[in-house]
Design a binder for these strands. Structure first.
Lengths: 194, 194
DNA sequence: AGGTTTCGAAATACGCGAGTTTCGAAATAC
DNA sequence: GTATTTCGAAACTCGCGTATTTCGAAACCT
């Protein structure tokens, strides 16, 4: 009924092309970063023609923002009844996300955020906000159960809890093995029980 | 006496130009990343002519590797007599390094490491190795004092101890305030006293 | 002093990436 | 069926980045 769903005459836009473009953009971002991403590479990998790509996104910036905005972090239910259980689910979820492609694509946009406020806002909304909300809920429940005395700022807690995962993956280039994830969980629980 | 110190006839290479090139390269790396770094920008910011730059480094890769290799992490004496004291010095040192330019330049090379083994090796040797050595010494002393039972792998400990700092600086874009650094130190001490 | 090298300034060749356009074929609303 | 729109393929313009070269001036070893 509204403007976006109005059916236009003529041939309809291929949904397969849409998905192929997003897929190619995200994987190329993860591999080569924002500056290293080329429209030509997107065209080649997606198998789409240049006319098709440019009719949807006239600039590279537009394309990247659309690709990032298409990402929805899968929601998680972390309410297990204990701080250790909640953090365990939360940390494993983040670890899985890091080892997939999306998080690498996001990470590759770090320098670009400073130059592109819209990109920065999109990233915060899609990735940071959900994590902060979830962690805040975990801390609130722990407080109610008496497992922690005071609730630290969610942003501080997020850095303490997930920082080690990113460091191992991106600085050391080591896999997030089950053993390492377990260590991270144990340390996070001890840290928050101040 | 050896080949590198042989005095050549004619005008000597300007040491000021050497430093200006390294300085410009590192700051531009931190700002724009490897792909975003251009020889023209190095020439402009360093105030050096293109002939001067290219006589020293014929390719961009060569220039970047030289710039990274020119970095010497300032050594720190972390031996204070207690685990808390040692980690306090260590973590503050890393935090300062992150807020300076060099660490940002190194971070910007993350994607490039995968394509350039020589760069990867240089980075590990200059940045990772000294940190691991220092942390290992801290852990060994703590073990001898009986402050910890077992010595964890140095790489695991490094991620747990410094990961939060990088996360806050690079993911949240928040400053490493004294309060946050203090939290990180407290977290690390509690974590290692398993 | 003479020969050698580096210096800054500038011009140049060359390739690559962004963005546009043209073309004929295919799909679809009406 | 007809008009409209999208499709892939391909050619094209334009600017920018890499790398090279030329030139005269300046610095420096012997």
């Amino acid at each position: 009924m509204n403007a976006t769903t109005t059916v236009r005459p003529g041939r309809q836009r291929s949904e397969a092309a849409d998905e192929a473009i997003m897929e190619a953009t995200l994987s190329l971002l993860a591999e080569h970063g924002y500056v290293g991403l080329t429209m030509a590479a997107v065209i080649e990998r997606s198998g789409v023609s240049s006319a098709t790509l440019y009719r949807r996104y006239t600039t590279k910036t537009e394309l990247v923002i659309a690709a990032v905005a298409s990402l929805f972090p899968e929601p998680v239910d972390t309410d297990t009844g204990s701080l250790h259980g909640d953090l365990s689910v939360f940390i494993r979820h983040v670890a899985q996300s890091i080892e997939r492609r999306n998080e690498r694509a996001v990470q590759a946009l770090r320098l670009e955020k400073e130059r592109n406020p819209e990109l920065d806002a999109t990233l915060r909304e899609r990735f940071l906000a959900p994590r902060l909300t979830e962690l805040k809920a975990i801390l609130t429940r722990a407080k109610q159960r008496g497992e922690i005395d005071t609730i630290p700022p969610a942003e501080v807690a997020l850095s303490l809890v997930t920082g080690p995962l990113y460091h191992r993956a991106y600085h050391l280039d080591e896999p997030l093995s089950p053993g390492f994830v377990k260590s991270t969980i144990a340390f996070a629980v001890r840290a928050l029980r101040a």
